[in-house]
Simulated scan of single mutants.
Amino acid sequence: MKYFVVFLFLIASISTVAQTTDTPVKVSGTIISDNTGTPLANANIININQVTGTTTDDKGSFEIAVTQSDTLHVTLLGYQSLRVRVTNDWIKNKKTTIQLTQKAIALEEVVISPYYLTGYLEIDSKLIPIKEDYRYSISGLNQGYEGGQYAPEAFGKVLGSIFNPADMLYNVFGKKPQQLKKLKELRKDDTVRNLLETKFDRETISLLLGVTKDEIAEILSRCSYSEAFIKTANDLQIMDAISGCYEQYKILKKK
């Protein structure tokens, strides 16, 4: 009987630990400036593991669902981004304070080179460079593909990228199902999507997908997105492009 009681106690302890580790709980925090100690409003907090996000209020306070060992990515314009690991102490105490460091911004000299126009349309139209990126649509798919600047082999490049069974998408994400799950979860959280819509640095995407910025550019290149799109699109457009490309790749692979 004694051993049976001990066995039940161990089972209950294991169950409690598992529940504490795996079940999301609400924690709160306050984000302040490490220089002045003042609370920082409108700071963005993204749970990289759960793909959920929130922002701080006027008092620098926020609340978010976490599990132990989750990583929170904290960003605010003019401050250095910060990654914070969720500890057991934070979960127990329910509250913590996070300090952000202000960026030292050095202004660089900007040289503006104007186009020297003659006033004659035929001549001026040749002086101003025009860069066009062509986008092709394939029957049966709901999304177009960019082939870059027009060239005879552009359309062939698109087809070759899509139907290539060794596509980099498979190499990168085929062994990372958790990252693909994040792409799907991203569509459910408006806070995260709204944040990505205002960002162009690829930092948050790299953390969410577990890839480097160079790999992001290569993935999109393999999906036949133009260099102009890769450089100028916001992070949300980049994320949706990767997600859409992979979904279509899976459909084509099944066929």
Results as ranks from 00 to 15, higher is better:
Thr16Gln: 12
Leu40Arg: 01
Leu220Ala: 03
Ser125Gly: 01
Arg222Pro: 04
Asn44Pro: 00
Phe4Pro: 00
Ile31Ser: 04
Lys26Trp: 13
Tyr145Asn: 05
Glu197Asp: 14
Ile123Val: 14
Val51Gln: 00
Ser206Asp: 10
Ala18Gln: 12
Gly147Thr: 09
Lys255Ser: 11
Thr67Tyr: 03
Ile91Val: 15
Asp57Val: 02
Ile31Cys: 03
Leu183His: 03
Leu117Asp: 06
Thr30His: 04
Ala233Phe: 10
Val84Arg: 06
Asp133Met: 02
Glu132Thr: 15
Pro39Ala: 07
Glu203Gly: 01
Gln50Tyr: 13
Ile128Asp: 07
Ser33Leu: 05
Leu76Trp: 00
Thr21Tyr: 15
Leu76Arg: 01
Gly244Trp: 05
Val74Met: 06
Val110Asn: 09
Pro165Ile: 13
Leu40Ala: 04
Lys231Asp: 14
Ile162Asn: 05
Gly160Phe: 08
Lys95His: 15
Lys175Gly: 13
Thr191Val: 08
Thr232Met: 10
Ser137Met: 09
Leu236Met: 11
Ile251Lys: 15
Ile32Lys: 04
Phe155Cys: 07
Asn234Leu: 05
Glu227Val: 09
Ile162Gln: 12
Leu220Cys: 02
Leu209Pro: 03
Pro177Ile: 10
Glu247Tyr: 09
Val172Glu: 03
Glu247His: 09
Val27Gln: 02
Phe200Asp: 10
Pro24Trp: 02
Phe62Ala: 04
Leu121His: 10
Arg222Asn: 12
Leu76His: 01
Val84Trp: 09
Ser69Trp: 12
Gly147Asp: 06
Tyr136Ile: 08
Val110Gly: 07
Pro165Asp: 12
Lys175Thr: 13
Asp201Glu: 12
Asp124Val: 02
